[in-house]
Design a protein around this nucleic acid. Structure first.
Lengths: 243, 243
DNA sequence: TGATATTTTGTACAAACGTACAAAACTCGA
DNA sequence: TCGAGTTTTGTACGTTTGTACAAAATATCA
């Protein structure tokens, strides 16, 4: 069908790069054309519109990434030791976000960074995709974690999965902050190190006991200390509930 | 000096709201004027340019927020029990990001969300401010954590502080994700709950032992198991180092 | 009140935006 | 080699953008 797929690929790649670093609205079609060595007109030819281009980027990456995640998750659930299994589950979620499963070289981190930026901008085009495509995968992970940590309320797992995704995003958005604050001792752009740190941190977070809730009474409370903590720590929370 | 400060405030407030939800470039000066009930021309009168407006928003919030953080940090460092102290330190960092210390009602979370969005967009105006204004405060927190967890390498603390900030940002950027994934059992917009969950998660993360590094030799390795973990967990990291 | 300073308004403009479209260049099967 | 189909190019369009600026309105103080 397409005689020269190179240009189409070049446009997708250039758009991905620019969108993921500057945001959607800060990048013009002319910017993308320049970066890709293409003519502005050929972008509308291939992708109909700027929104269409963004949509195509998502279509390109979402499938392979989540497929890889599920593959790794299935393997992870078979791990015997609870501690090791939990780590494998978290790793199955994190790893494909950094390195692309498909042939697209190293595009994984770039696409994840793109997702972070679009999420921050509240991009309307992307808004719908998120819930439809990603929630299924995320739910599979939450279920797997629930199974490994049956004492932990689902709501707490959801909160901690939110923190994981946020940490993941921000690591890709501002890696230079890690380098700067560590005074050069650590490299925020070292993806392998980032994965290890993120997995270790998240596993520890998940293994912590549930937070103490102030509504001491009913249902949702089932603080069963799994790990350390839970001493005189509670109910300090009322001074400034925020907007 | 200013005869009617209301309009100036209204513009700042409207800009803050719009920037923090849509991003910088997606919002036009005319949008802000409409939201504030002002004339587009009066925005350039008060703030010189769109960049100047953004800068003024930062000036308005950064000082009070970091001042409050340091106040809470000083108090936190005096806590005797190590566990409680660590929690107090993390809370001192998190709490002012959600609820504004100053008179501006509930503007804390909105400004923090703005910071998240600007960070994701790689906003040039803001780029400089971050390092100058925030790093001092952040370093004070890292030092306090170092003091409470002397066995943990500074680099690891930096990584985990990165994850904390990312989690904080994303919680404000996409609260509806928490609500959705928890099937309505949790409310992602419940700031008090978010703070508790975030503090608990972060304290657990910080208390975890250092990650195992593969370069088994020299210097930076000093894995001294503080908490649970560290079993057969290591060196699984080479399959796909990412871009 | 009248003079002065400050704020708001309305309009204007050059530049950049997303997109459309006809012409040119190209590819490839027959 | 020819001709149909595909891709690329160049240009042009109507909008919207950030900003400038003179005029009008408003507040402040003698």
């Amino acid at each position: 069908m397409t005689r020269n797929p190179n240009m189409r690929e070049a446009i997708l790649s250039a758009a991905e790069l620019l969108f993921s670093t500057r945001g959607f609205n800060a990048v013009s079609i002319r910017d993308i054309a320049l970066e890709a060595g293409a003519n502005p007109g050929s972008i509308t030819y291939h992708f109909k519109s700027k929104d269409g281009l963004l949509l195509e980027i998502y279509k390109r990456h979402c499938g392979p990434m989540n497929k890889r995640r599920i593959e790794l998750l299935v393997a992870a659930r078979r791990v015997r030791d609870v501690q090791d299994r939990l780590e494998a589950i978290v790793r199955a979620y994190v790893q494909p976000a950094f390195s692309s499963s498909s042939d697209l070289a190293g595009g994984g981190a770039r696409f994840t960074r793109l997702r972070a930026v679009m999420s921050a901008e509240g991009n309307a085009v992307v808004g719908r995709i998120i819930a439809e495509i990603f929630d299924d995968t995320t739910n599979a992970f939450i279920e797997a974690i629930e199974e490994s940590l049956p004492h932990l309320p689902r709501t707490t797992i959801v909160w901690r999965s939110q923190f994981l995704l946020g940490a993941l995003y921000y690591t890709l958005v501002s890696p230079e902050r890690v380098t700067r604050l560590s005074r050069g001792e650590a490299d925020g752009a070292d993806m392998a190190e980032a994965i290890e740190q993120l997995v270790a941190s998240t596993v520890a977070s998940l293994q912590a006991s549930d937070v103490d809730h102030i509504d001491s009474g009913a249902g949702s409370r089932r603080a069963k200390p799994t790990q350390p903590s839970a001493k005189g720590v509670a109910a300090k929370r009322k001074e400034n509930p925020a907007s």
